[in-house]
Amino acid sequence: MRLPDKTTTMEQAIAAIPDGATIMLGGFGVPGTPFLMIQELVRQNKRDLTIIKNDANETGMGVDHLLVAGCVRRLITTHLGLNANAIRLMNEGAIEVEFCAQGMLAERIRAGGAGLKGVVTDIGIDTEMGAGKQRIEIGGEVAMIETALRAGVALLHAARADTFGNLRFAATARNFSPLMAMAADTVIVEAEEIVPPGDIAPDDVHTPGPFVDHVVHVPQLSGEYAVVRR
């Protein structure tokens, strides 16, 4: 018995994403952002996308290319502080933005990945972030329901993948990726290194292969992955 080979080309993997798709993007700042797959989304001129990502990268990088190219209708995120362009588009009404508390974004995605309908929490309950959310009394306390998030597609960047899709992430590039890997109908991974099954020891796997649909090798990273000199 051997585990299936899920390697494919980036062009093919991205071509299957329809306009109007909801796409989760891994990454917190530069680490973990799948810059090359984002560029391919722009190149293939996807439209009307809903993007779920912790942040919108910085002006001129990553998610910002999608915004500039007019690919995005809606953005679910936690913080746009490093992307003045994203804030401007939000203020002009060119994109719709839903802000989440960062840990709640993680839990909403994890819940979606775990087949749950939502999360019961008190985070933000006394703030405008809690406005309009369904309240529930539990254990004698008032909490609110944060709905689970799923996506049609998750695009993730891994340091290392085997051909079956077992993944390892590097340092703080892990962030939302293992959660998003569980919460999308189709999970596409770009990996800096692709190895045969077994080369990542079972105890060393961060995301198990069955969550992953397609693995794309990116031997040459673009400049966007490099250390940012501010």
Binding site: F28, G29, V30, P31, G32, N54, L82, Q102, G103, L105, A106, E107, R110, A159, A170, A171, T172, A173, R174, N175, F176, S177, P178, L179, Y225, A226, V227, V228, R230
Partner: peptide, 27 residues
């Protein structure tokens, strides 16, 4: 290290005993 930042985007380092984890674990 291009993969090692803090939440503010500053490039940081580890110390003996550091750990990396996903965002759900972090919160």
């Amino acid at each position: 290290d291009r993969n090692l930042i803090d939440a503010g985007g500053a490039y940081v380092s580890t110390v003996p005993g550091s750990a990396f984890f996903d965002s759900a674990t972090s919160f």
